[in-house]
């Protein structure tokens, strides 16, 4: 139920948008977010519920790598 899937906004038309779910394009609703084209959003039951912060996403990956390196024998 609380599954939300990341998608990239391709084209906005009013409160609707076409979003790319890894190759599959589907219409989503933008009522709950302020998003622009090319933004990544989390989509839940047809609605974007939050924009994904790309800087934070990169930071998390950097952190994971650091963790793995720090435990290398």
């Amino acid at each position: 139920m609380c599954l939300a899937i990341p998608a990239k906004i391709i084209k906005i038309d009013g409160h609707k948008a076409i979003a790319d779910f890894g190759g599959l394009e589907q219409e989503i609703l933008l009522d709950l977010v302020d998003a622009k084209e090319n933004d990544y959003v989390l989509v839940h039951v047809g609605y974007a519920i939050q924009t994904i912060d790309e800087e934070e996403a990169k930071e998390t990956i950097r952190l994971f790598n650091e963790l793995a390196e720090s435990t290398e024998e």
Binding site: M1, C2, A4, D31, L32, H44, I49
Partner: peptide
């Protein structure tokens, strides 16, 4: 309308339309 806070705003937005 089932679901937690993840879902409830979608119902709210439909009602507001």
């Amino acid at each position: 309308a089932i679901g937690f806070e993840t879902t409830a705003p979608t119902t709210a937005s439909a009602i507001l339309r």
